[in-house]
Every structure is written in C-alpha cells, then in structure tokens.
C-alpha cells in the first residue's frame, strides 16, 4: 500500500507540467550516434519550447536504422504522437539489407539538418589537391585506400560516385570501412590510409589545426567559412549530402499530418533549435512538404544506382 501511495504522489508530481501532445521519438540507433543526438536535441527543444510537455526518446538500434524503421511502421501505425529520426544512411541501408519496410511505409515530415562530405589527407601526404588524388586513383585504384564509415554508407557511396565520375570502375575502389568516425579519423591521422572521407564536422578541428589537409567538399557550391573547392570544381559531377530527417507514423489523417508538420515547423523556427544547431555544428537544411518528398525520391534512385555499381546491391 505504501508503494502505491508513493507512486500516486509521483504520478501527480509528474503530471503537472503537461502542455500539449506527448511525443515519443524513435532513434533507430545506439546512443551517441547522429540520429540519437538528433532525437535527443528534438526532445530538449520540444520540451523547452512548450511544443510538447512529455517527450520520450527510445533507442531501437540495428542494421542502419532499418530495425527501428520496421518496428515503427508496424507498431505505431496511426499514432500521431510517434516520430522517428532517420536520414540518408537509412536510404542505403534499406537497399543493402533488402529491408521489407522502406521510407514509403512511413510519413516523412521534414529534412532537418544536413552535412556535406569532406575528403581529407594527412598533412604529410603527397597529394596536394583533389586533382592529384583523382590522378592517382585513375592510375591504380588499389593503391589509393580510403578510410570512411560502414560499407554501403554515405562515405562509401560518395567514393563510388567519385570513382564513377572519374571513369574508374567503382568495384575497384579500395575502401576500408570503419565502424565509428573516430576510428577512421585515427587511421587517417596516423597515415595508415591514403585518404579519408566523412562528414566535414568530423574533420573540422583537425583541418583547422593543420594536421589534415582538406582537399574537397561534396556540396554544390563552396561552403561559407570552409576554404576548400567543391568536387564539382575539379570536373567531377558529384554532390552528396548526408541529411537527417524526421518522419511520422504511417496511416495518419491529413489533419494529423498537418499538426505534426506544424509542430516541427515551430520547432525549427525556434531560437532554441537554432542555438542547438550552432553548438552542434549542424547545417540548417529544413525542407518539408512536396519539395522534401521530391528530393527523397531523387536520392533513393541515385543511391540504388551507385550501390549496384559498387556491387553491394544486385
């Protein structure tokens, strides 16, 4: 009886700060990764801005987010209070893992943040420009080892696209997959590999300190505050953006979808979110509605093409 009494006091205390709808956010990854951080930042801002009184983050890790996605699509069908965080990596993982559940089975709401890929070499490397690196790649693809994230992930796809644009068989690239950004960075710093590729944020402080040389970034135009040419400038038509998005459950009515979209828009426009983007070094690439759907469809078909070229998808 005492426990129930205590519990009901606790319950009362916790019910007090109730504002609007409760949300639960699925982070389809282990704690610590980009999706987990995105989900937890959403949680913080939603609560501080009073968009939602009670936000819970649930980690459902596994297989590039496809496990979380599959669970979300089946268990939260029609639940307007459920969100899932995802991103470009999921597009590739759905294809390589032959996931039966795809992004078509959820309701994408908006792209939130994004990051461009950066290609770096150790300071001691003989490659001075991106052109030098591409020349070496053309001459002997095996001699150029690239350190980056998991096989079939954004980094791998970007290298495949670069090889293809340079007229090199993407199957021939010598790509060394690492599990975490940290491990790959160590291999690059220690000059264990020829070059490294990952999101710019991973390399930023090293580039500033001069221990890594930034050769190129994968954006369409030069980025503000980053002193490096784009891959496009060197004559290879490659643009890769590693974006993160938030999606709602399948089976929502139009009103429900509009309500979630409005909540997310309010969040993105808030000063607290902008502040978070700044401290975390994330680019604001907010895109919603039909424009986002179109972008998504384009990314899916391009990714499928290059994964076939690399040989990861039949």
């Amino acid at each position: 009886m005492k426990h129930f009494f205590l519990a009901s006091i606790l319950a009362g205390a916790m019910a007090l700060p109730a504002f609007a709808a409760d949300y639960k956010i699925i982070a389809p990854a282990n704690p610590g990764g980009g999706w987990d951080q995105t989900a937890r930042t959403l949680q913080t801002v939603m609560q501080s801005e009073g968009i939602s009184g009670n936000v819970q983050v649930i980690n459902v890790p596994g297989a590039g987010g496809t496990i979380g996605l599959a669970q979300f699509a089946s268990q939260d069908k029609g639940n307007a209070g459920a969100l899932i965080v995802g991103g470009y990596v999921m597009v590739g993982a759905i294809l390589t893992n032959k996931s039966p559940v795809t992004l078509k089975d959820v309701t994408p709401i908006a792209r939130l943040t994004g990051e461009y890929e950066a290609i770096v070499v150790p300071a001691s490397s003989p490659f001075q420009t991106f052109g030098d690196l591409v020349e070496a790649l053309k001459k002997d693809p095996g001699a150029v080892s690239w350190a980056g994230g998991s096989a079939g992930g954004t980094d791998h796809i970007a290298v495949g696209l670069i090889a293809k644009a340079a007229g090199v068989d993407p199957k021939k690239i010598n790509y060394i997959a690492y599990s975490g950004g940290g491990e790959a960075l160590a291999a690059i710093l220690g000059a264990q590999v020829s070059a490294g590729i990952s999101g710019y944020g991973e390399f930023e402080s090293q580039v500033k300190a001069g221990t890594l040389r930034l050769l190129a970034v994968s954006s369409a135009d030069r980025l503000e505050g980053i002193d490096a040419p784009t891959i496009k400038e060197s004559g290879l038509d490659v643009v890769v953006e590693n974006w993160r998005m938030v999606a709602a459950a399948p089976g929502l009515s139009d009103e429900q979808k509009a309500a979630v979209s409005a909540d997310i828009e309010k969040l993105v426009k808030s000063a607290a979110w902008q502040e978070q983007l700044k401290t975390k070094g994330w680019q604001d690439t907010y895109l919603s509605g039909a424009a986002f759907d179109e972008q998504l469809a384009k990314d899916v078909s391009a990714t499928e093409g290059v994964l076939k070229d690399i040989g990861l998808v039949e």
Binding site: N30, P31, G32, G33, Q37, R40, G180, G181, G182, E183, L185, A186, E204, S205, Q206, K208, A209, T211, T279, K280, G281
Partner: peptide
C-alpha cells in the same frame, strides 16, 4: 576523436558546455 559510444556522447555533452575538443 570519440573512440567509444560513451565518448561520442561525452563529445555531445562537451559541446553543450562550449568545449570543442580537438588539437
């Protein structure tokens, strides 16, 4: 360099305090 999951979360924590780990 976050070499473990714990370190990756700590990195996020440090950023919260305006600490930008690096060389």
């Amino acid at each position: 360099l976050p070499t473990t999951a714990t370190a990756a979360i700590m990195l996020a924590g440090f950023q919260q305090y305006g600490l930008q780990p690096g060389p």
